[in-house]
């Protein structure tokens, strides 16, 4: 899977450069986030602007990242959700769990 990872001060911005985040590739995102946590980088933004489709495994990977970040007194925030992707968060009530921003600039400013 293609992930663009950039450090913005103490925050790490992960841009998911894939059309789908699903049972095929979401494990790689989860592993990448675990690597960042092991390096002590606990404040993460996941930018989903290129993602057109998310399934329950994709949501599961983001939940995993959120829980790990919180357990380390960090935070995982989301941005750039397309309309249908946002509906998935609403269907599974995860929109009440994650802080969701329109774009990475606003997400960065919130830390």
């Amino acid at each position: 899977m293609i992930l663009k990872i950039e450090e913005k001060g103490t925050v790490v911005l992960i841009e998911v450069k894939e059309e789908r985040l699903d049972a095929h590739n979401s494990g790689e995102l989860k592993t990448q986030m675990l690597t960042l946590f092991e390096e002590g980088k606990n404040d993460i933004i996941v930018d989903l602007q290129d993602v057109r489709f998310v399934d329950s495994s994709g949501l599961g990977a983001l939940v995993s990242g959120f829980k790990n970040a919180s357990a380390r007194n960090g935070n995982l925030k989301l941005c750039g959700l397309q309309h249908q992707v946002k509906s998935m968060f609403e269907l599974t009530r995860l929109h009440r769990v994650f802080e969701i921003f329109p774009d990475s600039t606003e997400a960065l400013a919130s830390f």
Binding site: D55, S56, S57, L59, G60, A61, V63, S64, F66, K67, L91, T92, R93, V97
Partner: peptide, 19 residues
Amino acid sequence: TPDFKNLEEHGRGIYIIRT
């Protein structure tokens, strides 16, 4: 329905299909 309160990684697939 999945356990919405306890944030689980798994268990949303069949719920989505049923919904």
